[in-house]
Amino acid sequence: MNHIVCLAYVPDTETKIKIGADGKSIDESDVKWIVSPYDEYALEEAIKTKETKGGTVTVVTFGPAKADVGLRECLARGANEAVRIAADGLAQVDSLGVAKLLAAAIKPMPFDVLWLGNKGVGTDAQTLVPMLAEFLDLPHVNLVTKLEWKDGAVTCWREIEGAKEVVETPLPALIAAQKGLNEPRYASLKGIMAAKKKTIAVKTPADLGVDVAAVSGDKAAVRWTKLELPPARQAVKLIPADDPAKAAEELLRLLRDEAKVL
């Protein structure tokens, strides 16, 4: 069984995000980059499945040259091949554009399962999975926390509000991983040493026959016009609790009049 895993290389979830000088992008100068955690669940499941059922795992990303570090980490964990669609020097590409680029890169590659994280920890748009499934004409199941392989099909447990839904899909299919699916492994040193020797295939949008100008910058369907940081947290307000009844009354008043949550 062959697997393709799409992944996003995103700012570390612990990064203190700063807004760039243009007011609509983040200041990347101090950012540490990581493979998006949900994509790590997808990668882990693909590698685990490969280890028991054979086949290969190919990782694909759309990103600038620094994303090679993330791809190499995936190779170190057990992916066989890596492809990067070069984003160097491009204006902002929206999810639709990314889906077109990924679909163009994936189309000629044979696979049984296409994996993604349920969302990319970055823009958190959560639109890539259905778009990619549409462009590749694949059934897709998202929010998956458990899988059971069958001959030519897979049963998926997916999270829905307050319950689990069990669905079955024929292969090939797109599966989007949710937290809880597995515990991603560490890259072993042996894997890191072996990954060093592998080459990452770099393709430009032109190589893939995608007119990137039509899906980026001013032509993108979704454009970022402004970024704002959440308001700074205000000082904690302590309510004296000498008289519990009065304190409860005061708390209710504050929640209603000041916080406006009631």
Binding site: V69, R72, E73, A76, Y186, A187, L189, I192, M193, A195, K196
Partner: peptide
């Protein structure tokens, strides 16, 4: 190089 850095990050995360 890059592979030392990757290993260092892995060790850090593990520890």
């Amino acid at each position: 190089g890059e592979e030392h850095e990757l290993f260092r990050q892995t060790v850090r995360q593990f520890v």
